[in-house]
Every structure is written in C-alpha cells, then in structure tokens.
Lab assay of single mutants.
Amino acid sequence: GSVVKEKKEKALIEVRPYVEYYNELKALVSKISSSVNDLEEAIVVLREEEKKASEPFKTDIRILLDFLES
C-alpha cells in the first residue's frame, strides 16, 4: 500500500520536468491508484490508458511508465 503510493508519488515528482500534462497525469495516477492493489496492476492499467491516449499525453504516460518500471 504505502510503498506503492510512495513509488508513484516519487515517480510523479521525477517526471514532472519532462511531461507536458502534469496535472492530467497526476489525476490519472490518482484515479488508477484507487482501483488497483499494487504497482504491477497500476502499470498494466497505465499501459491500457497509453494505448487510448493521443499525443502528447501518450508520451507523458510513457515517460511515467519508464520511471515506474525502472
């Protein structure tokens, strides 16, 4: 629970300088966080969101995924 939350919060802070739609990304992460149990599940849902998103938000999600998977 809290470790996953920390990882996601740290990821958002780390990617902030590189993303165009930070507030939207943060809102998406919050929405996903409330419906998943762990980081792996969150990553799966983020990948689905990435497929549906259009640029440049798609790239923002990709940047976040790269950080979460590192």
Score class of each variant (00 low, 15 high):
residue 1 G to L: 01
residue 1 G to K: 08
residue 1 G to W: 00
residue 1 G to N: 13
residue 1 G to H: 08
residue 2 S to G: 11
residue 2 S to M: 09
residue 2 S to E: 11
residue 2 S to D: 14
residue 3 V to S: 14
residue 3 V to M: 07
residue 3 V to N: 13
residue 3 V to R: 06
residue 4 V to L: 14
residue 4 V to K: 05
residue 4 V to E: 12
residue 4 V to T: 10
residue 4 V to Q: 09
residue 4 V to I: 12
residue 5 K to N: 14
residue 5 K to A: 13
residue 5 K to E: 14
residue 6 E to R: 05
residue 6 E to F: 01
residue 6 E to A: 11
residue 6 E to K: 06
residue 6 E to Y: 00
residue 7 K to D: 09
residue 7 K to H: 13
residue 7 K to A: 15
residue 7 K to L: 15
residue 7 K to R: 12
residue 8 K to I: 15
residue 8 K to R: 09
residue 8 K to T: 15
residue 8 K to Q: 15
residue 9 E to M: 10
residue 9 E to W: 05
residue 9 E to T: 06
residue 9 E to N: 07
residue 9 E to R: 05
residue 10 K to E: 08
residue 10 K to W: 08
residue 10 K to L: 13
residue 10 K to M: 13
residue 10 K to A: 13
residue 10 K to H: 12
residue 11 A to S: 04
residue 11 A to N: 03
residue 11 A to C: 14
residue 11 A to G: 04
residue 12 L to Q: 01
residue 12 L to W: 03
residue 12 L to S: 01
residue 12 L to I: 03
residue 12 L to F: 03
residue 13 I to G: 06
residue 13 I to C: 14
residue 13 I to A: 14
residue 14 E to I: 05
residue 14 E to M: 04
residue 14 E to F: 03
residue 14 E to V: 08
residue 14 E to C: 15
residue 16 R to S: 08
residue 16 R to H: 12
residue 16 R to Y: 15
residue 16 R to P: 15
residue 16 R to G: 15
residue 17 P to Y: 05
residue 17 P to I: 15
residue 17 P to A: 10
residue 17 P to G: 14
residue 17 P to N: 13
residue 17 P to C: 15
residue 19 V to F: 06
residue 19 V to H: 03
residue 19 V to N: 02
residue 19 V to P: 14
residue 19 V to K: 01
residue 19 V to Y: 07
residue 19 V to D: 10
residue 20 E to H: 10
residue 21 Y to K: 06
residue 21 Y to N: 15
residue 22 Y to I: 04
residue 22 Y to P: 02
residue 22 Y to K: 00
residue 22 Y to R: 00
residue 22 Y to F: 13
residue 22 Y to Q: 01
residue 23 N to S: 07
residue 23 N to A: 13
residue 23 N to R: 04
residue 23 N to D: 15
residue 23 N to F: 12
residue 23 N to T: 10
residue 24 E to L: 06
residue 24 E to Q: 06
residue 24 E to T: 04
residue 25 L to V: 02
residue 25 L to R: 00
residue 26 K to C: 07
residue 26 K to E: 15
residue 26 K to Y: 14
residue 26 K to H: 11
residue 26 K to A: 14
residue 27 A to Y: 06
residue 27 A to E: 14
residue 27 A to H: 08
residue 27 A to T: 09
residue 27 A to R: 04
residue 27 A to M: 08
residue 28 L to S: 01
residue 28 L to C: 02
residue 28 L to R: 01
residue 29 V to L: 09
residue 29 V to M: 09
residue 29 V to K: 01
residue 29 V to T: 03
residue 29 V to W: 15
residue 30 S to M: 10
residue 30 S to T: 14
residue 30 S to I: 12
residue 30 S to Y: 10
residue 30 S to C: 14
residue 30 S to G: 11
residue 31 K to V: 12
residue 31 K to M: 09
residue 31 K to L: 13
residue 32 I to Y: 02
residue 32 I to W: 02
residue 32 I to N: 03
residue 32 I to R: 02
residue 33 S to L: 13
residue 33 S to N: 06
residue 33 S to T: 14
residue 33 S to C: 14
residue 33 S to A: 13
residue 34 S to I: 09
residue 34 S to F: 06
residue 34 S to K: 08
residue 34 S to G: 10
residue 34 S to M: 11
residue 35 S to T: 12
residue 35 S to F: 13
residue 35 S to V: 12
residue 35 S to I: 13
residue 35 S to Y: 13
residue 35 S to A: 13
residue 35 S to Q: 13
residue 36 V to C: 05
residue 36 V to E: 06
residue 36 V to F: 05
residue 36 V to L: 06
residue 37 N to K: 08
residue 37 N to E: 08
residue 37 N to C: 06
residue 37 N to M: 08
residue 37 N to W: 06
residue 37 N to G: 08
residue 37 N to R: 08
residue 37 N to S: 12
residue 37 N to F: 07
residue 38 D to P: 04
residue 38 D to W: 15
residue 38 D to M: 06
residue 38 D to E: 08
residue 38 D to S: 13
residue 39 L to A: 06
residue 39 L to W: 14
residue 39 L to I: 09
residue 39 L to G: 05
residue 39 L to S: 05
residue 39 L to R: 03
residue 39 L to K: 03
residue 39 L to F: 11
residue 40 E to K: 09
residue 40 E to L: 09
residue 40 E to Q: 11
residue 40 E to R: 09
residue 40 E to P: 09
residue 40 E to G: 09
residue 41 E to N: 06
residue 41 E to S: 09
residue 41 E to Q: 09
residue 41 E to K: 06
residue 41 E to Y: 06
residue 41 E to V: 06
residue 42 A to R: 02
residue 42 A to E: 08
residue 42 A to V: 15
residue 42 A to I: 15
residue 42 A to L: 15
residue 42 A to C: 14
residue 42 A to P: 01
residue 43 I to H: 02
residue 43 I to M: 13
residue 43 I to E: 03
residue 43 I to R: 03
residue 44 V to P: 07
residue 44 V to I: 10
residue 44 V to T: 10
residue 44 V to G: 11
residue 44 V to A: 13
residue 45 V to N: 10
residue 45 V to A: 14
residue 45 V to G: 11
residue 46 L to V: 02
residue 46 L to Q: 00
residue 46 L to K: 00
residue 46 L to T: 01
residue 46 L to M: 07
residue 47 R to S: 08
residue 47 R to Y: 10
residue 47 R to W: 14
residue 47 R to D: 02
residue 47 R to L: 08
residue 48 E to R: 08
residue 48 E to C: 10
residue 49 E to V: 05
residue 49 E to T: 05
residue 49 E to S: 05
residue 49 E to N: 05
residue 49 E to F: 06
residue 50 E to D: 02
residue 50 E to Y: 10
residue 50 E to Q: 11
residue 50 E to V: 08
residue 51 K to V: 09
residue 51 K to H: 12
residue 51 K to I: 11
residue 51 K to Y: 10
residue 51 K to G: 10
residue 51 K to M: 11
residue 52 K to W: 07
residue 52 K to F: 08
residue 52 K to L: 09
residue 52 K to Y: 07
residue 53 A to C: 05
residue 53 A to D: 01
residue 53 A to R: 04
residue 53 A to S: 08
residue 53 A to G: 03
residue 54 S to H: 10
residue 54 S to I: 08
residue 54 S to L: 08
residue 54 S to G: 07
residue 55 E to H: 06
residue 55 E to P: 10
residue 55 E to G: 09
residue 56 P to C: 04
residue 56 P to Y: 04
residue 56 P to E: 06
residue 56 P to S: 05
residue 56 P to L: 04
residue 57 F to S: 02
residue 57 F to T: 02
residue 57 F to H: 03
residue 57 F to Q: 03
residue 57 F to E: 01
residue 57 F to P: 01
residue 57 F to A: 02
residue 58 K to S: 12
residue 58 K to Q: 05
residue 58 K to M: 03
residue 58 K to Y: 01
residue 59 T to R: 10
residue 59 T to G: 11
residue 59 T to D: 05
residue 60 D to I: 15
residue 60 D to S: 05
residue 60 D to N: 03
residue 61 I to Y: 01
residue 61 I to V: 04
residue 61 I to L: 05
residue 61 I to N: 00
residue 61 I to Q: 00
residue 62 R to T: 05
residue 62 R to G: 11
residue 62 R to K: 12
residue 62 R to Y: 03
residue 63 I to D: 01
residue 63 I to Q: 03
residue 63 I to P: 00
residue 63 I to L: 06
residue 63 I to C: 04
residue 64 L to S: 00
residue 64 L to H: 00
residue 64 L to P: 00
residue 64 L to Y: 14
residue 64 L to M: 05
residue 64 L to Q: 00
residue 64 L to C: 02
residue 65 L to R: 06
residue 65 L to S: 04
residue 65 L to P: 00
residue 65 L to G: 04
residue 65 L to A: 11
residue 65 L to K: 03
residue 66 D to C: 14
residue 66 D to S: 12
residue 66 D to G: 10
residue 66 D to T: 12
residue 66 D to Q: 10
residue 66 D to L: 11
residue 66 D to W: 12
residue 66 D to H: 15
residue 66 D to A: 11
residue 67 F to Y: 14
residue 67 F to C: 04
residue 67 F to S: 04
residue 67 F to R: 05
residue 67 F to M: 05
residue 67 F to I: 06
residue 67 F to Q: 05
residue 67 F to P: 00
residue 68 L to A: 02
residue 68 L to G: 00
residue 68 L to N: 00
residue 68 L to E: 00
residue 68 L to T: 01
residue 68 L to W: 05
residue 69 E to S: 11
residue 69 E to N: 10
residue 69 E to V: 10
residue 70 S to W: 06
residue 70 S to F: 09
residue 70 S to I: 10
residue 70 S to K: 13
residue 70 S to L: 09
residue 70 S to P: 09
residue 70 S to E: 11
